[in-house]
């Protein structure tokens, strides 16, 4: 039971990270109908930027752990959002009217570009986050010890997801994003500046992905320039699982995938952990292409 509970909380924390990344995929897909293959690498950029800022500014020492990490997270979100907006401007906007193959190839190219640029800047080895940024204490829940980091990650990701949900549902620009996702041309006719909507999507998605990268750095302590690809694929799986284009779906899908994967790795086979996620993806696409909460149908003829 102890083992099960530990795996469950671990799965919930990892699931929170997947969900944050998945939101970026699902928002871009909702508006542009494009799988942003470079999104996983934006996540990696977030974790590398977090490392650089953490070591060069020593925020944790100056502001204390809580405020330091918070300031760090805001800085990472801002910087990765800028990278995301630049990516959209350079690699995707010129291809808005082109066939979808072109945009997907461009996205793949951007992914290769980012991951190898990181390798050139930081080197191919694993980079290690400084230890002891967040206190290594355990919180006692129902008589079982759970590491504080896991709880913080889950809480922070749920908080950000809720904020995003209300932003999308309640604000003007959120409404415009929803309108553009349903029908871009109709939205344009209603006076919505679709270019601005797309820019916002490419600011919010990468910001969430970037902060997820920071969380992975703080949680696992080491990062690598290729990790974006596997996290990206898992997060994309999560987005499909919940129903792509659907924001609550990405949250549910992410957390579900994290838990399934953690339990699968613990009770079935550690070596097959990644295969479990891909198996789930293929199974979902065959059996229920709309995802668990999705209304959007995987294109069929």
């Amino acid at each position: 039971m102890e083992e099960f509970f530990q795996q469950l909380t671990n799965g919930l924390a990892v699931g929170g990270i997947y969900a944050l990344i998945a939101l970026g995929y699902t928002m871009v897909y909702g508006v542009l109908k494009l799988i942003n293959f470079a999104h996983g690498d934006l996540f990696t950029i977030g974790s590398y930027l977090g490392l650089t800022l953490l070591t060069s500014l020593s925020l944790a020492d100056r502001l204390g752990p809580a405020a330091g990490v918070l300031v760090l997270a805001v800085m990472v979100m801002g910087l990765v959002a800028v990278v995301g907006a630049l990516l959209e401007r350079v690699a995707y906007r010129p291809l808005r009217q082109s066939p979808r193959l072109s945009a997907v190839v461009s996205a793949l190219g951007a992914s290769i570009f980012f991951s190898n640029a990181l390798m050139l800047i930081y080197g191919a080895r694993f980079q290690v986050y400084p230890q002891g940024i967040l206190p290594k204490v355990a919180v006692n829940i129902f008589g079982l010890d759970v590491p504080l980091v896991r709880i913080l990650i889950l809480a922070a990701s749920v908080l950000m997801m809720l904020a995003l949900y209300f932003f999308i549902q309640k604000t003007r620009i959120g409404t415009a994003i929803r309108a553009a996702a349903i029908d871009q041309d109709a939205a344009r006719l209603m006076g919505i500046d679709v270019d601005r909507v797309i820019l916002f999507v490419f600011l919010i998605g990468p910001a969430l992905g970037g902060v997820a990268g920071l969380m992975v750095g703080l949680h696992y302590g080491q990062i690598n320039f290729t990790m974006g690809w596997i996290y990206g694929l898992k997060a994309f799986t999560a987005a499909i699982l919940g129903g792509i284009g659907n924001i609550p779906g990405a949250m549910v899908g992410g957390i579900l995938l994290g838990v399934v994967e953690a339990l699968g790795a613990a009770y079935l086979s550690m070596a097959w952990k990644d295969a479990i996620a891909f198996g789930v993806l293929i199974f979902i696409l065959i059996v229920r292409p709309t995802g668990l909460l999705g209304e959007r149908v995987a294109e069929k003829v």
Binding site: L34, I35, R100, L101, V104, L233, F236, T237, I240, D274, A275, F278, G279, L281, I282, L285, P289, A298, E299, K300, V301
Partner: peptide, 15 residues
């Protein structure tokens, strides 16, 4: 499955 979906599934199969 068309387009991007097929793409992602073939990546999954490869992995």
């Amino acid at each position: 499955l068309t387009g991007d979906y097929l793409c992602i599934v073939t990546i999954g199969v490869g992995e």
